[in-house]
Structures are given as structure tokens and as C-alpha cells.
Amino acid sequence: MKTAHGLTGSSRRRLTRLTSASSEDRFLSPMLAPRFALDTKTLSGADLHLDIAGLTARSARRKRRDALWASIVESGCSIAARLPPHCRLALPLDSVETPPDDLILHLATSLTATKLDASRLELEFGENTLASENDTLFYALAALHDLGVGLVFAGLGAGVTSLTLLRDRAFTGLLSALKLDRQILLRLHTVAEAEPPLIRAIVRFGADFGLTTRADGVDCPETLAFLTDIGCAEGRGAALGRAETVSRFLSTHGFGDKAHDEG
């Protein structure tokens, strides 16, 4: 990976912006939702929450289709560098449908600026993105995978998901994790006969393909117990811990500012 001194002029200007402004000031009060290993109830990572509507409006003002992606990646790297090494940060890239052609450059620039190892980041993609038959996208995902970035198929259960798509993306080795949407967990308590077998099947599918399965919306003890029992690896929700500002998250989990120095 290039050093900061080897970057192009535009990349150097972006690096300067990253290091001269507070991520929390520039990105509309980002929040971190803690993610726990369900078997041990220990912190395994966090999910980044951003004001996507605000960032989208900012992208429109800039008239740049990739501005939203760039903002999420830059903000995520800056925040991840403040977390301890074992705490992986997931970035919500499922909110935009098409990645920019220079996604790898955005990421490489941000990793260099923050001295962050790529393995401490995870990128969440929605079905609309992963269903694309764009070769450029596949090459980008493969390159991210080779860098060590985790790739998460997010939103499972929020709508109609193609099992063929899920199988194909998992079989080609582009994915590292599956994420159950909170909607399917909400239905767990209203369509009791149908949802548990489906959730079990998704967790089993992930295990068979060597993928980590995580759940969003673990909001009550019953849901937590059910997911733990069927072998879901990770989860986040009210039953585990609520989203907090970055500074409060670090304080709550006993990291303080020391984690930033380690990053």
C-alpha cells in the first residue's frame, strides 16, 4: 500500500481533510452500536450508525455520486482507529446501490491516513449491490477480501432474498458474514411457527459455508436465548447494549483514549 508521500494530489488533499477535522463533528454525530459474541457475551465489535439522510443531502449538494461512500469509508476508518484491535467496525454500505469505481482508492487513502489495518473493518452490502452482475464490482469485492476487509451480506429477512444469490456469493468466497435484519426477529414473536425454522436455516447455511452469522435487533431476553441456542455467533440490540456516541462508547467499554493510541 502506498505511503502518504506516494499519494496523488487529490488523495493527499483527502488525507489532509481526514487528519485535520474531527470525525464526530464532520459526520453528523456518528453512533456506535456494540456487537457481542453471543456465546460468551463479550464485545466483538461495533456497527457504525450515521445520519444517512444528512450525508445523502450533502452528496447531492456536492453533485458527486460517490460522496456518500467516501464519507462513510473516511468516517469509519477514523473511528475504527480509536477502537481496540479486537473490536471490528462494520460500515453500513448497504444504503447505496452502486459502489464508486475508486472505492479501493478511497479505502486505501483512509487506511493510510489512520494507520489502520484493513482486517479491523467490515463492509455491509445489501442485496441490490450483491445482485449486480458487474465484473468491476466483483473485482473490487475480491480485492477488498484479499486486503482482509470483512464483507457482510446485510438485510437478510427484511424482504425477499434469493437463495441462489446467497449461495453463489458465499460459494465464490466473496463473503465473510451474514447479517439477519431486525425485521425477521420482530416476526419471530408474531409468526412463531414460520420464523424459527427459517432463522435456523440461515444460521446453518452460514456455518456450512464458513460464514459468521450475526443478528440485528436482539432486543429481548427471549430473542437472545433463541439465537444463542441455535448457534448465531454475534448480535446487537437493546438486550445487549444501546448505540452511543463514539466517546461514550469508548468510556462505557473501558477503553478511554488509550485505544486511539493503539490504532
Rank of each mutant, 00 (worst) to 15 (best):
F138Q: 12
L137Y: 03
E222N: 10
A259R: 10
F27P: 04
T42E: 14
S247Y: 03
A158W: 10
R200A: 11
F205N: 10
T16V: 09
T161P: 03
S176N: 12
L227S: 03
V149K: 01
D146A: 10
G155H: 04
S10G: 04
A118G: 07
L32T: 09
H49N: 12
L175F: 05
G159W: 09
H49I: 13
M31V: 06
G231N: 05
H49T: 09
R65G: 08
K2N: 11
D101L: 09
T164R: 14
L28A: 14
G54Y: 11
T223M: 08
E193W: 05
C77D: 05
P92F: 02
T109Y: 02
S23Y: 03
L178D: 00
F255N: 00
H189D: 13
A233C: 09
V203D: 05
R58V: 08
H106R: 00
H260R: 15
I104N: 04
C232N: 07
S176W: 09
E222C: 04
A225Q: 13
S20P: 00
A238D: 15
I184V: 15
A259I: 08
V218T: 09
L15D: 03
E222I: 10
R182F: 05
A194D: 12
L198H: 01
L156E: 07
R88C: 13
I230C: 07
C77M: 08
D257W: 02
T172E: 15
L144W: 04
